[in-house]
C-alpha cells in the first residue's frame, strides 16, 4: 500500500464520489415520486392506469439495471432518442427504483387493517380526513423498512453506471487500475468511498426503522 498514490488519486475519487452521489440521489428522488404515484394508482384501482402501472412494475422488477441501461443508452439512440450518459443513469435508476418503491408503498397502504377504515367512518370522518389522518400515517410507517432497504439497494446499484462510461467511483477505479496497475490502492479507496457513502445511510436507516416502529392493535 503506497500512501502517496492514494493521496494523488484522492481528487479523482472525490470528483467521482460527488457525481455518484448526485446521480444516485436524483435517481432516488425520481423513484420516490414514481413510487408514490404508482402506489396510489394501484391502491385506488384507477382503471387503465393501474394496468399500465402493473406492466411497468413487473417489467422493471424482473430485469437487471445493466440491461435496462444498455437498452436506453445504446438501443434507444438507434430509433432517434438520444440521452446523455448522466441523464440515462438518473432515469434508469429512477425507473428501476420506481418499480421497487411502488411495491413497498403499495404493500404499506394495503397492510393498514380494514377495521381502521371502518372505525374512522363510524366516527364520522370524511374520505379525505380518513385518508390523511388514519391511513396515510400508518401506511408510511409500515413501508419504512422496505423503503430503507430500497434506498441502500439503489445507491449500491449506482456502481453499474460505469458500464455506460459514466465517470462514477467504479469507473474511476477501473480506469486507474488499467492505466497504472496500482490495483491494491485503487480497490482500497473504492471500498472506503463506498463505505463513506453507504454506512451512514445504513445506520440512519436502522435508527429510523426503530423510531417509526409502533405496536399494532392486538400485538
Amino acid at each position: 500500500m503506497d500512501f502517496e498514490v492514494i493521496v494523488s488519486y484522492l481528487p479523482l475519487y472525490i470528483k467521482a464520489f460527488m457525481l455518484t452521489i448526485k446521480i444516485g440521489w436524483i435517481g432516488i428522488a425520481l423513484s420516490l415520486g414514481i413510487g408514490v404515484f404508482c402506489a396510489f394508482v394501484l391502491h385506488f384501482r384507477i382503471p387503465v392506469l393501474s394496468a399500465i402501472v402493473k406492466v411497468y412494475v413487473e417489467l422493471f422488477r424482473n430485469t437487471p439495471l445493466l440491461v435496462q441501461l444498455f437498452f436506453v443508452y445504446f438501443g434507444l439512440p438507434k430509433i432517434g432518442i438520444s440521452i446523455s450518459a448522466e441523464a440515462c443513469g438518473a432515469i434508469g435508476l429512477g425507473l428501476l427504483g420506481g418499480s421497487y418503491m411502488t411495491e413497498s408503498f403499495r404493500s404499506g397502504l394495503d397492510a393498514v387493517p380494514v377495521s381502521q377504515t371502518e372505525s374512522a367512518l363510524a366516527l364520522g370522518m370524511r374520505k379525505g380526513q380518513l385518508f390523511s389522518n388514519v391511513i396515510l400515517p400508518q401506511a408510511v410507517t409500515l413501508s419504512v423498512p422496505a423503503v430503507v432497504a430500497n434506498l441502500i439497494f439503489l445507491l449500491k446499484e449506482t456502481s453499474v453506471f460505469s458500464a455506460i462510461s459514466l465517470m462514477d467511483l467504479m469507473f474511476t477505479a477501473k480506469d486507474l487500475i488499467g492505466l497504472y496497475y496500482n490495483t491494491t490502492e485503487c480497490l482500497f479507496m473504492l471500498v472506503i468511498f463506498y463505505v463513506v457513502m453507504l454506512l451512514p445511510v445504513s445506520i440512519l436507516g436502522t435508527v429510523i426503522e426503530k423510531k417509526t416502529r409502533f405496536k399494532m392493535f392486538g400485538d
Binding site: 449500491k156 446499484e157 490495483t183 463506498y194 453507504l198 445504513s202
Partner: peptide, 16 residues
Amino acid sequence: VRIMPQMVLLFIVYFG
C-alpha cells in the same frame, strides 16, 4: 454485504 455493491466485491475478488 448490505453496503458493498456486488460489482465492487467482484472486482476485489477478480483483480484484488
